[in-house]
Amino acid sequence: MTVRSLTHRLLSLRTREALHGYAFIALWVVGFALFTLAPLIQTFNYSLNRVVVTVAGVNLTHMGWANYTRALATDPTFGEMLIGYAIETLVAVPIVLIFSMIIALFLNLRFRLKGVFRAIFFLPVVITSGPVIRELTEQGAATAPGIADAPAVAEFLAQLPGALRNPVEYLLVSFILILWFSGVQILIYLASLQKVDQGIYEAAAIDGASAWEIFWKITLPTLTTATVVNAVYTIVTLSHFSENKVVRYIYGQTYALQGGIGYASAMSFLYFAVMAVLLLIVYLFLTRLLGKEAR
């Protein structure tokens, strides 16, 4: 067999492998083009137009970036909502991360009734839906019982400067709600904790490491990937949640006389941009922070 025919056969093997690979993902590629890319481009197109939907079809009137400038400069609610959303997300993410990590560490221990507690902590994963959360918050069941209403707390809140008051108030009012968004994150932490070789812990204990040192030097570094995954997951679920104020506002504007599809599309893209920036900030922050710990 000559070298040439060998390389030829190798090449054809490579091509065959690639073709079979493409066959497996073909559905996805078609789906992505049809159900994600095309609508995304179309939505962007809408955002540059005034859109009127009639029985006959969709009428577009080009108006440049007017929808965007209107959302940012003229609409008083939208800008305020975006800032509120960014602050609330940045407050909620560390809480969800720390809380779910603590719960996962607990659930990774050996103790009686573990199954019962595990079942309780994952319950929110199962029942968190927009309407259920809305009903619960309306009835005040999602608020930490009485904390936000206590006179001492109200006094404390009144003392805080405006920039701090909103996040703290949000924290107190929605504390249970934030915890309810931690179910999947607990699972992810737990899964990566259980992959750690127990031998490492034993070796560290024999070398005389304290539980504190073991946590910082062994456990936390093994949770780095899970933390980044969880942070991304938390931001995305909070941002996509159908009861999110901004999401509801945009949805409302879609059908409003003053707003319309074009305006709602522009706001969707602005919202997406803020969300992407948040993801980037948290991602960079976490990889920096945890990268240092791992070293």
Partner: peptide, 14 residues
């Protein structure tokens, strides 16, 4: 990316 893109950015044309 399909996980991150908010649904309202694609839902109306669909």
């Amino acid at each position: 990316a399909t996980f991150i893109i908010p649904p309202q950015n694609t839902v109306i044309p669909q």
